[in-house]
Each structure stands twice: as C-alpha cells, then as structure tokens.
Amino acid sequence: MKRRGSVLIGSAFVALAALAFAAPRVVAADKIDPATEAKAFRNYFTAKFPKVKLDDFVNGPYSMNADMRKQWVEKEEFPPYEFAVDAGKEMFAKPFKNGKTYADCFPNGGVGIRQNYPHFDAKEGKVVTLELALNRCREANGEAPYSYVKDEMASLTAYMAFTSRGKPFDIRIPDDPRALEAYENGKRYFYTRRGQLNFSCASCHVQSPGERIRAEILAPALGILNAMPIYRSEWNGMGTISRRFVTCNSQTRAVPLEPQSDEYRDLEYFLSYVSNGLPIAGPGARP
C-alpha cells in the first residue's frame, strides 16, 4: 500500500514535469522559473522521506537504508577514496611542463570551489563542468587531456571536492536565454524515457529512491551529485560523474552519450541546480 502511494506521488511529479515540457513554447518561454522548480523538486523528496534530514540526501543510498548506513559508517574509518585525494593533491601541486599549475586555471587556486560547478559560460554560451574545466586547463597548458571517467580525473575532482566539503551547492542560472535553455534541456534529458527498457533517469532516482534494484538501493535525485566522485567496490576504484552517467545509461540498455557531450553537461547543470543549498560531500564511497 505504502509503495503504491509513493509511486503515485512520484508519478504526479513526473506528470507535472512532463506537462511543463508539453506546454506550448511561447507560453513556456516566460513561465519557466528554475528557482520555483528547484523548490518543488526538493519538497517532493522531503515529503516522501520526512525522516531524512535535508543535508543527508547527499549520502545517496545511505540516507535511505539504516543497515547500509551502518556498514558505511564503519568503512569511513579507513575511507577507500583517500588514495585518490592524496594523488589529486599531489597532481594539483606539481607544475605542468610550462611551469604553470592547475591553480592558475581556477578561482581561489582551485581550493574550495567545487560547489560552483557546473557554471554557465557566457562567452561559449554553454555549460562548463569541473571535469571539462580541468581538461581545458591541461590543454591550454600544452598537456594531453585525461580520460573523463576514472583514475587521474577522479583523483583531481576528489581533491577539489574534498577541499569544498560542507559548502552548499551554489549553481547560478544567469539571465541569459541560453542558460535557461541549457537547464531545460538537462531537465528534459532527465525525464525522457529511452532504450529498450523504457527508463528515464527519473524512473529510478525520482520514482523509486530507497527501493532495492537487485542488491542495490537507489539513491534519490536530490543531492545525487554532491558526493561525486565516488569509490565503488563494484568498480574496484573511483568513478567520476561522467562515469556514473555512462554506467546508468548502459545498464539500462540505452546507448550512452560521449562524456561531456552537450546533453550530459546540461544534465549535470540541471541536477546540480536542483540540489542548490545541499553541501558538497565528495569524494564518496559506495558499495
């Protein structure tokens, strides 16, 4: 009975979002209000899980399940992502061949700024994620870009998240129709069903958070990026946001996009924006 109820509420929310897309463009253009939508998004989850504290949603599956939480708390004594933070710190300090460092590419030397990514770049007219900014920094300094999904990229983002822990997500949508379009596009991607199995991201992370999918507990979409990058035992290592997007797409028999494609950048923009105010918790550890 309980489940039916929650699925219905979930459906109502999804239906609401679907309605928003279906609205005629002319009307939609001046009606989209991301701030109101983000509030409704947050309220959906806090109403569905009244016992979960707002800041705890960033802990994904652990916020949903007491048993899993216990195992996790024990594991955090020797965090499995520590090697990545250390490696990232070292990489950050080591100069490129031209003598510059990552610190030269970022505000505040790259320390404590995770919560401001992704941001909308007015010059390019597109969303720039932290992973993208890191590779652009490398390329601007004559270094080859890293793979977006793991290893070095995960270490760099792990370190940057670590120095930003506790800072609330502060994603801005500037008064620019292209920024609003990027947000809308990300939202559309999130709610669109795809692949042979007909799943949207929302099928699992809005309609079914807290439920078991085989042995795994589904994380809620609220705060779902705050703990990235993550160490996963199943991966036997670290994974970035790009890796998680690709994995979720391919596990549901949908064709994954290229990491840092426009759609994934917009998706990350949407998911981060609706989690504004929730603290950065990365890097995280997951079973």
Binding site: V7, G10, V14, Q196, L197, N198, Q207
Partner: peptide
C-alpha cells in the same frame, strides 16, 4: 503510463 515496468512485449525484449 507512469509505471517503471518495461514494456517487454512491445519493445521486443
């Protein structure tokens, strides 16, 4: 229409 259960026949799974 809101279910997350895949359409096994329609999608030829």
């Amino acid at each position: 229409p809101q279910t997350v259960m895949p359409p096994f026949g329609r999608n030829r799974i």
